[in-house]
């Protein structure tokens, strides 16, 4: 976008506004990690292929490595760190812990964030829908079985707590 000088970039992350010194073309992932000190989103490929960097943009899953930070200024960005409410982990996080749905856990951020986005859209997904949603979320340790269980578990928890 044609710029008029370079005013600080303002991002709304986990409910708070932040002015950052990065140029608008800097990857959102880099800004979240380096300027805001957030460790949830991880660098895996930088190409939108693996999902390790997933955050939510207005509640929809987004791969922060392919998004220039300037492109999401003014939109609500949520990271793994922003899921907990009043000191209580999000039900999806609790479900992943309960099912031990990670080995090294490098992919865990992406799996949890993708689940949150999926359940917001489809509160009771079928197994096939879950597999489709995660078709391009990569895990090399092979925690897939536990992750699939965790998504079902999370769906049940979210439904239960909504009551």
């Amino acid at each position: 976008m044609s710029g008029t000088g370079s005013p600080p970039l303002r991002l709304t992350v986990n409910g708070r506004d932040h002015d950052v010194a990065a140029t608008p073309g800097t990857a959102l992932l880099t800004v979240l990690r380096n300027d805001l000190g957030l460790n949830g989103p991880k660098y895996g490929c930088g190409l939108g292929e693996c999902g390790a960097c997933t955050v939510l943009v207005d509640g929809v899953a987004a791969r922060a490595c392919v998004i220039p930070a300037g492109g999401v200024a003014g939109r609500a960005i949520t990271t793994l760190e922003g899921l907990a409410q009043e000191g209580m982990l999000h039900p999806v996080q609790r479900a992943f812990i309960a099912e031990e749905a990670a080995q090294c856990g490098y992919c865990l951020n992406g799996m949890i964030m993708t689940t949150v986005a999926l359940l917001a859209r489809r509160p009771q997904p079928t197994d096939a829908e879950i597999r489709a949603e995660f078709a391009r979320s990569l895990c090399r340790c092979g925690a897939h079985v536990e992750i699939l269980r965790a998504v079902h578990h999370a769906a049940a928890l979210v439904a239960h707590e909504a009551k």
Binding site: N39, G40, E81, L89, I97, A102, G105
Partner: peptide, 27 residues
């Protein structure tokens, strides 16, 4: 026994080597 490392990992609080930040750190 439940894995000791998972709660922090699921909360985004675990520090992986990728997350090390030192004062004055360069890239």
């Amino acid at each position: 026994v439940p894995r000791v490392d998972l709660p922090a990992k699921a909360a985004g609080e675990a520090v992986y080597v990728h997350d090390v930040r030192r004062p004055g750190m360069l890239h």
